[in-house]
């Protein structure tokens, strides 16, 4: 098992987390996919923007935990966070303003389509998308903020 050349810096002679890395590489896309299922199936079963946002953020957080924060910041750049946080709130508020313009009350989605029930359906989809964007980016932002302040922890730390 052990490689005699490498024993000085690592007793196993290889990456000790290889199993973790392989399994999470398989799981992370599935977690993200599940988040979108929860998002768009939220009208018909349990779920919605909040849950989907947290699950989507959890996939990025898992990536950061297993592959390191620098890798995660390459995959999901911190630049996106500033836009995402604002965009979600604006999408939610913007839906209300569009209702205003179309002649309804603020956040009365019935005006979005000729049929009131269809309009409500579109409106809920739009605001859930806004919720998803804000919750995902804020959760990732909070994790990045705490994680970046961390001194490097070693395996023996626990």
């Amino acid at each position: 098992m052990s490689d005699p050349q490498n024993t000085s810096d690592n007793p196993l002679g290889r990456d000790p987390h290889v199993l973790l890395r392989v399994i999470s590489k398989f799981l992370i896309p599935l977690i993200a996919l599940f988040a979108f299922y929860v998002q768009f199936h939220g009208d018909y079963g349990p779920g919605g923007g909040f849950q989907a946002g947290v699950i989507l953020a959890a996939s990025v957080i898992l990536y950061a935990l297993v592959f390191g924060l620098a890798e995660a910041k390459r995959a999901f750049p911190p630049r996106l966070i500033r836009y995402g946080m604002t965009l979600g709130v604006l999408l939610y508020g913007g839906t209300g303003v569009v209702n205003f313009i179309l002649g309804g009350e603020f956040l009365n989605y019935s005006t979005l389509a000729s049929d009131a029930a269809t309009g409500q359906h579109y409106g809920i989809l739009a605001i859930e998308l806004g919720v998803l964007t804000t919750v995902t980016t804020v959760m990732i932002a909070i994790f990045y903020a705490f994680g970046s302040r961390q001194p490097e922890t070693s395996d023996e730390d626990w």
């Binding site: 909040f50 919750v135 903020a145």
Partner: peptide, 17 residues
């Protein structure tokens, strides 16, 4: 309660910061 849970984690993160 759904809204309260998510607001709870937001306030918790501020407290931790």
């Amino acid at each position: 309660i759904l809204t309260a849970i998510v607001v709870g984690v937001a306030t918790l993160s501020i407290g931790l910061a």
